[in-house]
Amino acid sequence: GAVALPAADMRLALPDDGTAPTSSSKRTAYDLVSEGFGEGFNGRLVMVVHGDDAQQVQRASASAAAAATGLPDVLAVAPGQASADGRTALLAVVPKSGPSEQATFELVRDLRAKLATTAGATGAEISVTGVTAVGVDVSDKLSDALPVYLVLVVGLGFVLLMLMFRSILVPLKATLGFLLTIGAAFGATVAIFQWGWLASLVGLDTAGPLVSFLPILLIGILFGLAMDYEVFLVSRMREDFVHGDTAKEAVVAGVGHGARVVVAAALIMMSVFAGFVLVEDPIIKSMGFALALGVAVDAFVVRLSIVPAVMSFLGDRAWWMPRWLDRLLPDVDIEGEKLRPLETATSDPAPVGSTVR
């Protein structure tokens, strides 16, 4: 649980050259520009002013420049460049902070809010764009979609596991264990790649925000692997339980038969993902680290330690389901429980003296 705490401070952004390897040419150029002109020159914003005529655009451009200059994180506003017909003008805004810093994100939002008032007063259309502004928009969109995506993935997984195992507590345990896995993976990744803790151990030169699409990628891949490991273990427990074993005997049998499969599968995936940590690119490096750690936590901590302990503690209660819900849900009968009476009937020996035809 403590490993997941840094995840509360997770920041998302599109990558910039400021986090590139120090030996790369683009990082050298970024550092030279920052040293000579300030970090904001690496992430300039662009104000686009459009109106019905040139006079309106000129007035709106002057008002927009004055509004931007009044913001605390703006270093300078370059003079506007008008189009041939004078109906569109571009103004460059140089922030004081770097393109992936939180202050720049706030500047984009504040600038748009302030320019909305200016646009209303002048009647012109005023927009804020540029690579940095696009990065802010993408990060905000993905951050807003992340809770919905997580609820959808976990919710559908819960329903499918409930259909498979005919239980409420088993899928609840599986999904809560997955949330623990995600929390640990996010927390450790934030601590190393965003805060810079132990960054030298993974060969990271400069810490910075995580790439915007990492959480969605991490949730999707780890959820699939986590549910695979869950099914490997619990399906055998369920099969033995419905065929007459006690709950504890079913847990022992399930772990005994499924643990080797889970360990082998986890080691394979960890080896694949850990190989990406050796790449210089910090984006690929962070992806590989998060996935490798997530697989390790889920397989060895959640599925092979917590799951057997919880199943043993719950006993027969692990397979409880309300009768009304059991009647409502379709019975997929994965374990072949309905075939057992038929198998018993066909295997009974014929009575002595009877004729078998």
Rank of each mutant, 00 (worst) to 15 (best):
I268W: 03
A8E: 13
G130Q: 07
A247D: 08
L329R: 04
M10D: 06
A13R: 15
V94C: 10
F41K: 04
L90H: 11
P341F: 03
T189L: 04
S100R: 04
A113H: 14
T19F: 01
M227H: 14
L142E: 09
L161V: 05
L293Q: 00
A89H: 05
L107M: 02
A89K: 07
S143E: 14
A133M: 13
S305G: 06
I168T: 06
Y149V: 04
I216F: 08
L111S: 11
R260I: 11
L14W: 02
A247C: 10
V3C: 08
A345T: 07
G70R: 12
T19I: 13
N42M: 02
V295Q: 06
S61T: 07
A84Y: 13
R317Q: 12
G196W: 02
V310D: 05
P95R: 00
L339A: 15
F276Q: 08
V307Y: 03
L198G: 07
V57W: 09
D245H: 03
M311V: 10
P171A: 02
F273I: 04
E230S: 05
E35C: 05
L293I: 02
V159Q: 07
L325N: 09
T22C: 01
P351R: 02
D16M: 06
P282D: 07
F273R: 00
D31V: 00
T355L: 12
A259L: 14
P79H: 08
L210N: 08
P171T: 03
V302H: 00
L314N: 06
L204Y: 01
S235R: 13
V279T: 09
R27M: 03
V159K: 05
H257S: 14
Q55N: 15
W324G: 02
